[in-house]
Design a protein around this nucleic acid. Structure first.
Lengths: 191, 191
DNA sequence: TTACCTTGTGCGTTATAACGTACATATGAT
DNA sequence: ATCATATGTACGTTATAACGCACAAGGTAA
């Protein structure tokens, strides 16, 4: 009933598409009676039916939910520079651990500098966390902009790349390798 | 009943906060029985109750909905960090991923603030990377000092703790879990 | 040990989401 | 005008979300 703060955009979406309730009922598998009640706020749908609706429209769930707020600035931190000659400045933060299947690097790019990486082995996942500056990550063929304090996780089995903004960028780069199950229960190599 | 494939991250969020079902029930107004059923997928919540939960955690709704991110085309899985309150300031940088068995938090401690953590489950490894300030980490009964740009990796199945220096501290905190095989193959939610 | 508290889960009841069908109005065609 | 088809809403039933309470397992203290 009273869904207090939630604004559902179903009515807008449907109006934009110009489809009738009956038609939407067909393509979503949700009864038109329910669709009507949801539209006029008489019923609060479960996420399951909300998902059916989104799927029917081939929209992400967020397109139906009144997206409340995007999130905040995270202040950048000052990192003590570790100078390193080469095209990139790379420092190993956490060495590769076979039990975890993970390693972490600290990478610095100067202003407008870019770096491309070929596809890694399947099952490799990368995470990027921007420490300061602005960074763009090439993922799935498109450049995703990131600010300090923001992170991006993506599958690394496609070609990908990084390029810094006008004031350069520093970021952490985590690599996760798929863990063969038989490796999972060795004991840790940690101190 | 069948909540088909929707993955809700309530369990992860609650685990990250370290709160009990009863406690979450208090701060959200949702009965702990229902919270439990939602966590183990026995019930598909309405968006109204999902909203109550998100509001209780002071999180955006998207933080609870299974970021269908697994190859949803339009969804660039850029994780804006989401904060939730408590004794310390914690933001989710990379949400828990059952395939990786890893999650990353951004933690801030005010000046001289400390935080102790009980032993986690065996097989959990933590990594700490100091963004700014000075931090001491209690590991194996001794306090290890860390400066900005330094990292520490340790096994979390012993009691451990953090305390900031005079000017406070901010750090990334990665958790690596040993991978239970049954978590790895949840079905896709996509058509 | 005996209490005592807290954890999470199971059970029975109530509230309501979701369904199918029927209804009322609207538009268009004959 | 009547008929026909489509719109969205109202009704009655079923499935299930959500509740409060009670229970069993684990931990702590006296």
């Amino acid at each position: 009933m009273e869904s207090d703060g939630i604004t559902l955009k179903l009515r807008d979406v449907r109006a934009a598409s110009g489809l009738s309730l009956s038609r939407v009922a067909e393509m979503t598998g949700v009864s038109k009676a329910m669709l009507g009640q949801i539209e006029r706020g008489e019923s609060s749908p479960t996420i399951a039916t909300l998902w059916k609706i989104a799927k029917g429209f081939q929209l992400p769930l967020s397109a139906l939910i009144g997206t409340s707020a995007l999130r905040d600035p995270s202040d950048a931190s000052v990192f003590r520079t570790v100078t390193f000659p080469g095209s990139l400045q790379v420092k190993i933060v956490f060495p590769f651990d076979p039990v975890l299947g993970a390693e972490t690097f600290h990478v610095e790019l100067s202003a407008n500098q870019s770096h491309n990486s070929p596809a890694h082995a399947a099952g490799v996942t990368e995470e990027v966390f921007v420490l300061n500056g602005t960074l763009e990550v090439l993922r799935d063929g498109e450049w995703v902009p990131l600010n300090a304090g923001e992170g991006l996780r993506f599958s690394a089995d496609l070609p990908h790349g990084y390029r810094a903004g006008a004031q350069g960028a520093a970021f952490l780069n985590m690599h996760h390798y798929a863990q063969p199950a038989e490796l999972a229960n060795q004991e840790s190599i940690l101190p």
